[in-house]
Simulated assay, not measured.
Amino acid sequence: MEAFFVSTSLVALAEIGDKTQLLAFILAARFRRPVPIMLGILTATLFNHGLAGSLGAWIASAVDPAILRTGLGLSFLAMAVWMLIPDQLDSDTMRLSRRLGVFGTTLLAFFFAEMGDKTQIATVAMASHYAALGPVVGGSTLGMMIANVPAVLIGERLAQHLPTRRIHQLAAALFALLGGMVLLGLGG
C-alpha cells in the first residue's frame, strides 16, 4: 500500500503545473468534450507509466541492490531539484491531425508529452525502489488523473487559483525526503 500511496501523492503533486496539465487545459478548451479527453489521458498514462514501471522493475532485478539504492536515492534528490524548474508546453504537441478525433488526439498528445517527463521518470524510480509494479503504476496513474481531471473539467479558472510554486516546493521536499530515506536505507 505504501508504494501505491507514495506514487499517487508524488505524481499528483508533480503534475500540478506540468506541461501535460497545461495540455489538458488546452485540449479541454479546444474540444469541449471532457469524457473522451479524460479517457485519452487515462489510456495514455496507463500505457506510458506501465512501460516506465516495467523499466523500473527490470532495473531493480538487474542492478546490484547497493548500487540501486545509491542511484535511486540520487535520482529522487534530482527529482526534487527538477520539481523547482517551471514546465512549458511545446507547441508541436498540439499539431496532431484532427482526423484522430478527440480521444486519439488526447491519447497521442499525452503519451508523447509524458515521454521523459518528471512523472514518467518518477514512476521508473518508484518501481525500482518498491519492486511493486502494479501499485506503482496504479498509483502514478491515479496521481495523473487527480491532477488532470480537474484541469479538464474546470479549465483555466483552476490554474489561476492554484499556488503552483508552493505545490512544486512541497513535491520537491517529498522527493528530497524520499531520496534521503533511500540513501540512508530507511523505509520501503
Rank of each mutant, 00 (worst) to 15 (best):
P65K: 00
L77A: 15
N148M: 07
L162M: 10
V137R: 04
T43H: 00
F103E: 12
R33C: 10
G50A: 03
E156N: 11
L89H: 10
I26D: 15
A127G: 02
T70G: 10
A28S: 12
A127C: 03
P65E: 12
T45D: 03
T106R: 06
G134S: 14
F76V: 12
V63G: 07
M94L: 15
P150G: 12
P86K: 00
G134T: 15
A113D: 02
V81W: 11
G138M: 11
G56V: 00
V63T: 09
T119V: 11
L77H: 09
G73K: 04
T106A: 12
M145S: 00
Y130A: 07
L39Y: 01
R69V: 08
V136W: 00
L84N: 00
A29M: 15
T141H: 02
R30T: 13
I85P: 00
D92S: 14
M115T: 05
L158W: 02
I146A: 06
G71W: 01
A29G: 14
F47L: 15
L51V: 10
L72R: 06
H161F: 15
G143P: 02
F31Q: 10
I121F: 09
P135T: 03
D90T: 03
L77F: 10
M115E: 02
I59Y: 03
G101S: 04
M144L: 07
V137G: 02
I37R: 08
L142F: 05
G155V: 03
T93E: 12
L55G: 01
V136D: 05
M83G: 08
A57Q: 09
M38D: 13
M38R: 07
A29C: 11
G40V: 09
L72G: 02
I67Y: 13
R99S: 14
A131I: 13
W58V: 13
L27C: 07
T119A: 09
D87G: 02
I41Q: 00
P34F: 00
R157Q: 10
S61T: 13
L108T: 05
F110P: 00
V136G: 00
S97L: 08
A159F: 15
A159P: 09
Q88S: 14
F112H: 02
G138C: 09
F47R: 01
Q160I: 12
Q160H: 13
T141E: 03
F25Y: 10
F112E: 08
I41D: 03
M144D: 02
V81D: 04
E114R: 02
V35D: 11
A80E: 08
G104D: 04
L133N: 05
G71D: 01
D87P: 06
T141P: 08
Q160A: 12
P135R: 00
S91V: 15
D92I: 08
S54M: 13
F112D: 06
